[in-house]
Design a protein around this nucleic acid. Structure first.
Lengths: 156, 156
DNA sequence: GGTTATTTCTGAATAAAATTCTGACAAGCG
DNA sequence: CGCTTGTCAGAATTTTATTCAGAAATAACC
């Protein structure tokens, strides 16, 4: 399917990324278009999977997720990074991101827990029980300055 | 302001995180509540900043963001991690996350660009021009297995 | 160039939803 | 008890989403 995006599509994406709950009517007003035309485009962007979904950003601290960490995971010698390992990592709710990376390490994961002790518990009870994980290297985040997907508008 | 969340709030957050554009009416049906009651709660969650915003997840590849990298940034000797540095990093659109981290390095940033050459251009033209940045260590992501904020429901 | 498709748009009609408001109900507290 | 506070349901009203027919624009092709 064709995924070429014109300027109007990018305008829509930009506004919807900043506020996914903007009403279609407001969006149409901002773009000086009929609501039906805008709706048609949004539906098409969803169909084409340009838009993958809509999420609510929740203040982590308010739901007891005060600690953020990045963990590099290396698998045992002789074991390549299997997708099983990745799936096992992804299945842990506290693991919010799983990236397969280049270099000696296999995966980089992003983890949110209530505090450092629950992070350690998670590493002991969940990470270490995943087969073929040899070692981990953890980076604790002290403060997050920016955290948002941001649309980088391609030049047309 | 009180930020205590009861079970109904968590139900709302869980559903809205999975789909920020769920209609208030549908949400009310799922929770067996009147739409007005649910709306009242959502507004309150917004006021209390439990809900920080609503965003649209865009398939990065469709907007020419095919490369994802994490970069560790170390500042020059004798210079502590100033918030100026962080602000300068955050101002770059391709830099989607800026975390101040523990340990020898200062910042961990998440960057999305079209390809490796544009990443290198960004590092040369933008990162290296920020004062007091001594060195960088880049980790290229080959494949992203999971990438979504996920609500970890606290035990009640 | 002229003729077809195809896509995208507008504008109106209708169905559905958001929003507001009033009052009921319950819990906490002096 | 009486008062306050918070939450809720239900109805009324405004606003929006959605659908549709047809016009305008765009692309494709001979």
């Amino acid at each position: 399917m064709d995924v070429s995006l014109d300027n109007t599509d990018l305008q829509i994406l930009e506004r919807m990324q900043a506020n996914a709950r903007i009403s279609n009517a407001d969006l149409a007003r901002e773009l000086n278009m009929a609501p039906s035309a805008v709706l048609e485009r949004v539906k098409k962007l969803e169909q084409k999977k340009v838009i993958q979904g809509y999420t609510t950003q929740i203040n982590p601290a308010t739901i007891q997720q005060k600690l953020l960490a990045f963990i590099f995971i290396r698998s045992s010698e002789g074991f390549t990074c299997s997708s099983n390992t990745a799936q096992a990592l992804a299945a842990i709710p506290e693991v919010q991101e799983v990236h397969h990376i280049a270099g000696e390490d296999c995966y980089l994961i992003k983890v949110r827990t209530t505090d450092s002790s629950s992070l350690m518990a998670l590493m002991r009870n969940q990470l270490q029980k995943i087969p073929n994980i040899a070692s981990t290297k953890t980076t604790i985040v002290l403060e997050t300055v920016k955290e948002q997907q941001q649309l980088v508008i391609p030049k047309i």
